[in-house]
Nucleic acid binder design. Structure first.
Length: 431
DNA sequence: CCTCCACAGGAAGCGCAGGAGT
DNA sequence: ACTCCTGCGCTTCCTGTGGAGG
């Protein structure tokens, strides 16, 4: 590529290098240093960024604020339950409101503590309890105590310090699905007999049927108030993206039609704002890496396939070994012209493949379940077919492009040796 | 019309790992 | 440090099934 006239100083950096272009990093450095700036502030486009303004969520912010307002006069607010699909702004609204409440509480010297716990990330009941303790300044060891003990320390802490704790449980459904609603039940009862201090819960869930998992007693006390977040429409997403883009990018780097496209694409997939922002960010990264000065439609298209590919790659590469081996068998059969193998063929190939890499094969029954799991993941499609005299079986077809699977298998040190193996696909054999 | 293939998929139980209680 | 409990991945054993071929 040619250097522009403004880049003399960049060129100068490399003049001491021998001529002839043997320095493999030279071009990389040149491009990095004279790369047109698209991003002004990368952090704005990250998923953990809490914006100053949340377009089209004023009403929700106000409602949540009203519900929590009693906390500022130290009377316990109602518990709130927030429903809404992913990327509808639940977390952003909660974090925003908490941030503002925390500022006020600190300024006015109100003993109000606000805790934000992501239940899926925290993972266990113990960790959730421990985080609540931390938030009111009660130290607990990361292990060694029973849950009951941590619970008691939390309760004692609330009473002795007279602190009012408002705790957000993001993605509570994850916690309840893994451990049941016991902890929530205990926590809703923690206020009984506390004359000062207390606990209020703000729960969020993106599973709209989450209520079905809850005991009616827990449900009634947990959802004293309810908020529902609807998915963003395309026009609302445009506003959100425009606002972010203004902060994140240099003027003119991201034209309006690119923003509109990102919004439209995300809106067609359940109005997920996070997806819209990711799409725009990746598109901008693509443009920047290309050395282009502005983001264009083609970058968005490219970003879309990168994100999609990333998801597939992520899903496939985290599969357990034997699922990968089954997938490899499917891949090898497909490459040798068998697009819709039946269970028997797959199992036979699977055993051969296991033999090749020196892994003890699982039983046909288990492999059958693995195929069902792959089916549920949408990696393959299985159809029940009856072949009369030749029995009843499933025909399996790959739904994922061969190249993408090959990419995952090829990335695995052991499995990659299998890619050239030719299965003995002649006749269906016995076990 | 009956058989019997080549599996599907349910039920039960086993060994193991990791976490909780003592 | 130790037992007990639980969940998970897996095997074993089992019953069920629609229709091509006899």
């Amino acid at each position: 590529m040619k250097l522009k006239k403004t880049d003399d100083h960049v060129k100068g950096l490399f003049q001491s290098k021998p001529r002839g272009g043997e320095d493999p990093l030279r071009e990389v450095f040149e491009r990095a240093l004279k790369r047109p700036k698209i991003f002004k502030d990368r952090a704005v486009m990250r998923s953990d960024y809490v914006p100053e303004r949340l377009p089209h969520r004023d009403e929700h912010i106000r409602r949540l604020g009203e519900i929590l307002a009693p906390a500022l006069s130290l009377s316990r607010p109602s518990n709130v339950f927030i429903y809404g699909k992913t990327g509808t702004g639940k977390t952003a609204v909660v974090r925003y409101v908490f941030k503002r409440f925390a500022e006020i509480a600190e300024k006015e010297g109100i003993p109000l503590a606000l805790a934000y716990v992501n239940c899926r990330i925290s993972g266990t009941e113990y960790k959730v309890l421990a985080e609540l303790c931390e938030s009111i300044g009660v130290k607990v060891p990361f292990t060694g105590l029973s849950k009951a003990e941590v619970y008691n320390r939390l309760r004692r802490g609330l009473r002795e310090k007279g602190v009012l704790l408002v705790a957000a449980f993001d993605e509570v459904d994850a916690l309840v699905k893994a451990y049941g609603d016991n902890l929530l039940y205990e926590l809703t009862r923690i206020n009984e007999g506390l004359e000062s201090g207390g606990l209020s819960i703000v729960g969020t869930s993106n599973d709209l049927h989450f209520k079905d998992y809850l005991d009616p007693r827990v449900l009634s006390s947990l959802s004293e108030e309810e908020l529902v977040f609807h998915p963003y429409t395309a026009t609302e997403l445009i506003d959100i993206l425009s606002e972010r883009a203004e902060l994140a990018f240099h003027p003119g780097a991201v034209p309006q039609d690119v923003i509109n496209l990102c919004a439209a694409l995300a809106a067609s997939e359940h109005g997920d704002a996070r997806r819209a922002i990711d799409l725009l960010r990746v598109a901008a990264e693509v443009a920047e890496r290309n050395g282009d000065e502005r983001v264009e439609e083609r970058h968005v298209k490219l970003a879309q396939s990168i994100i999609e590919r990333g998801r597939v790659f992520e899903a496939l590469s985290t599969l357990p070994l034997h699922s990968k081996l089954v997938l490899t068998s499917l891949l090898l059969l497909a490459k040798n012209g068998v697009a819709n193998p039946i269970s028997g063929m797959i199992y036979q190939t699977y055993r051969e493949v296991c033999g090749q890499v020196g892994v003890e094969p699982l039983t046909d029954r288990r492999v059958s379940s693995l195929i069902s799991e792959l089916d549920m993941l949408g990696v393959v499609k299985s159809d029940l077919v009856n072949m009369g005299r030749h029995g009843r079986t499933r025909k399996i077809a790959l739904l994922t492009p061969v190249e993408e699977i090959e990419e995952v298998i090829g990335g695995d040190e052991i499995l990659s040796t299998l890619l050239s193996y030719r299965p003995s696909v002649i006749s269906g054999g016995k076990r």
